[in-house]
Amino acid sequence: MYIGGYPRPFKYYRANTLGEALDLLREIGEEGKVIAGGQSLMPMMRLRMSFLDKLIDIYRINELRYINVRDQLVQIGALTTHQEIAMSVDIAKAMPTLTRAAWTIADLQVRNRGTIGGSLAHADPAANYLPPLMTMDAELLLASREGRRKIKLIDFVVDSYTTNIKPNELVIEVDIPIKYNAFGYSILKRGGNAFPIVIAAVAGRISNGVIEELRLSIGGISSHPLLIEMNELKGASVKEVENKLQSIIESSIDESIREARLLGDRHASEKYRIKAAKSYSLEAMKSALGGS
């Protein structure tokens, strides 16, 4: 206790191909844990917060590292690193909030090693990716020796650090439809390594100054990121909405948090996070509406 830095002994398995990984998962998936970039798992192991005795290293499965940007869809391999996503010009054009999310993860060393699949499977409530991906209806592709299945991200993430992945499954791809043209992203981080306190992402479709659809997602304040469909703004013009934005956002957030399990810690209390969520959501919303 209190020593940290040295994990407990474990058995290490390495998979070089997807097939090998799925075989291993079928065999020992119940007792084993998958490690990709290790940026979340290694600290937990070193602090002895994690009790595992089998580790399956999938980091070298290069076939899961790619970014395909098609007409209506972005497909990202699960082992693509945050830095690769941040540097992708195609992603930046199609969905700038995903780029910003990747850019603002931790620091350069973490971004060079951490992966999108790992981040989503870990499901930290303050994960940078969750708000933008939720606003865009992202889906995950999961594989096991029994077959493949697709699941919406919003259904995949159940609660803090809890997903409905099965012990023999691996996240292999993230699919994001390209259907929006208005984006906003705003993040509050304090201090060097601290996790984000509030992340607000907006995605919407605006045509000829009229709002067709607008969605706001907030991470970092609750055990499950909030997704708010701004239905009362549908059909309104950007101009007429400008003055009412703040009060609409505040009441929407107040409504959404009623059922939520709120987060608070020494860095920022529940009360602070809710207040900041309102300010940062407004900022993200203004970017989305201003840019169209």
Partner: peptide, 16 residues
């Protein structure tokens, strides 16, 4: 003690 890691300590980095 509430501070066990750098993250707990909220230490600013070069970016700050």
């Amino acid at each position: 003690p509430m501070v066990l890691t750098w993250s707990d300590y909220e230490s600013p980095s070069l970016g700050d």
